[in-house]
């Protein structure tokens, strides 16, 4: 581990992206992933450690036209307690309710959970089925520019994303769900919380007269990144939630994922869980 040469704590976004532009920067927000990973030698902190917690632009949850914008620095606890989230995005609140422990929720941020790009990150699967986009800011030519990317396309591997080294993840934008929108999250670990998912499932769609449209299915911890499951979505799109459809969707899900064996579960068991829990989620939606 090379020693950290400088520690910076910018107070504005402009300042922060300026520092990033100079290169060799590790970003610190809540620190709940960064610290244990660097200590364990899995992640090397670069020459500059930049604490972004003093930047006001990165905080808060607000309505922004037809979307909800959640600042990257928003903690998991703040999301859990936010009235906008409760009203429009209950599936995200549900995921936050299964997220680690109170202490970690108080420190850990949404931007950090996304930036850490764990295939098992608890907020990623629900955000993907909510069609969330990430907002990235940079200062390549002396002025701040931003771009947006769908979250479903953001991850490229464990710990890797399409964020360029000079970019800062500033916020997540989630379109306001339409009438009839339903979304569910399920996480499987040995313990109800304070556990890394063996698998996680997000399912969303709009139900109109019993027919599902805009079907979204995403899985966590079954691939190098959280994934959107196109074939499973296809099995769900435009269908009624009858027994045959549910079984077809669950089977499609099992076939579509390609997990690995690790200390937490075998691939076979993960596929079984994906099938059984996809079925259970859809059964519950059908009965509701």
């Amino acid at each position: 581990m090379t020693p950290i040469e400088q520690y910076l704590a910018p107070a504005t976004l402009d300042e922060a992206v300026g520092i990033l532009q100079q290169g060799e920067v590790t970003i610190l927000a809540g620190g709940t992933d960064l610290m244990p990973q660097s200590k364990a030698g899995r992640l090397a902190i670069k020459r500059t450690l930049m604490n972004i917690r003093r930047i006001p632009e990165l905080k808060g949850i607000a309505l922004d036209n037809d979307a909800i914008r959640i600042g990257a620095l928003t903690t998991i606890t703040e999301i859990l307690n936010d009235p906008l989230v409760k009203e429009y995005l209950p599936v995200l609140a549900d995921a936050c309710d299964h997220f680690a422990s109170d202490q970690i929720r108080n420190a850990g941020t949404l931007g950090g959970n996304i930036g850490n790009a764990s295939p098992a990150g608890d907020t990623l699967v629900p955000l993907i089925v909510l069609d969330a986009e990430v907002e990235l800011a940079s200062k390549p030519n002396g002025s701040v520019t931003t771009r947006r990317l769908p979250l479903a396309e953001f991850f490229t591997g464990p710990g890797r994303t399409k964020r360029a080294a000079n970019e800062l993840l500033t916020a997540v934008r989630i379109p306001l769900p339409k009438a009839g929108h339903v979304a569910r999250f399920f996480k499987f670990g040995t313990r109800p919380a304070l556990d890394i998912s063996a698998i996680s499932i997000g399912i969303a769609g709009v139900i109109d007269n019993g027919v599902i449209s805009n079907a979204r299915v995403a899985f966590g911890a079954v691939a190098p990144t959280p994934i959107r499951a196109a074939r499973t979505e296809e099995a769900l799109e435009g269908r009624r939630l009858d027994e045959a459809t549910i079984e077809a969707v669950a089977s499609a899900a099992r076939d579509e994922v390609n997990p690995i064996d690790d200390v937490r579960a075998t691939a076979w068991y993960r596929k079984e869980l994906i099938h059984n829990m996809t079925k259970r989620i859809l059964d519950h939606v059908a009965q509701a």
Partner: peptide, 11 residues
């Protein structure tokens, strides 16, 4: 303690 699972309060 991440992968060695002690029982926690809710269980």
């Amino acid at each position: 303690f991440r992968d060695y699972k002690l029982v926690t309060a809710p269980e």
